[in-house]
Nucleic acid binder design. Structure first.
Lengths: 158, 158
DNA sequence: TATTGTTATACTCTATAACTATA
DNA sequence: TATAGTTATAGAGTATAACAATA
């Protein structure tokens, strides 16, 4: 019995999607996010932790609400992130004696060292990511198998 | 009673984040995604629906698995998306009589009209998004209040 | 036994809202 | 009553796995 013929689909995204800036931005953003999460996760941290430490490096002593406002994070989300940072010894929290509702957050010496490490990690990630994009743009042969490499380049996964 | 002095945080992201390509890409991608979702949602659809219709426009008749592979979607995810497209009358599904495991998917005439509409929507979104980015780059005054407008420009929200 | 589609489940990320303790 | 922080809940979005029908 003959199967109904289905015109084979191209093994790539439709042209109208690939040429859409919003589509590409979304996928690039997702890839950037996954990259960052994976790399930070190996360090036992999250990009959000880096962002908080960076804020504390600029302001030295801040309330949780100020940090949340600066980064645009939800204040509930911030509680958990600070819990983790505090448990890792990277920040300290103490109540403002003049207004016991406020939590004053300060980065510890260990937190500062970690921040330096995260900066190097971020810089390295950026270099790898942009290099992978350049490589990919350079090879225009359709469906060309990329050269084997240990660290997978920007594959723009689903 | 004097409160403990907290050096006021700048109402913007730390420099090291703003200059990070991965950070910017992630935020741009999130904004692009939200933009698209909101706009498509007003049309009662999802960007994924557009992607599926675009694939069907290239291949005319496809199995669900082929669509999922092409777009990199999970096959379980695709079932629900096709259910919605079918209910809206934009695609038809029927079993392949030669292999009753396979579902053959075809775009309807109404689906084709909708696809044309989504293409216009996508193009319009793209213009607005890129225009908003250019505007923002043009105004370099820090904290300058953006001119009031009905459709919010690329605000890079949290 | 393998494959196609289907359904169920879980996990992450995010947003909202209820709650407490202070003011 | 309002505010800072905390906790609980719910919703997308996504990935995994169990399942049924067919090959």
């Amino acid at each position: 019995m003959t199967e109904i013929e289905t015109k084979p689909l191209p093994q790539r995204f439709p042209e109208e999607l690939v040429t859409s800036a919003l589509f590409l931005l979304k996928r690039l953003g997702m890839t950037a996010k996954e990259r960052s999460f994976d790399a930070y996760n190996e360090a036992g941290l999250h990009p959000y932790h880096h962002a908080i430490l960076a804020v504390l490096d600029e302001g030295s002593l801040a309330t949780q609400g100020a940090i949340a406002d600066t980064l645009g994070y939800d204040k509930g989300q911030l509680v958990g992130l600070l819990d983790e940072l505090e448990e890792a010894g990277l920040v300290e929290r103490r109540r403002d004696p003049a207004d016991r509702r406020r939590q004053l957050v300060r980065m510890t010496a260990q937190g500062r060292k970690t921040l330096e490490r995260l900066r190097r990690l971020s810089s390295q990630l950026e270099d790898e990511f942009l290099a992978a994009l350049s490589e990919r743009r350079a090879s225009t042969t359709p469906h060309a198998a990329p050269a084997a490499r240990r660290t997978a380049p920007a594959e723009l996964p689903a």
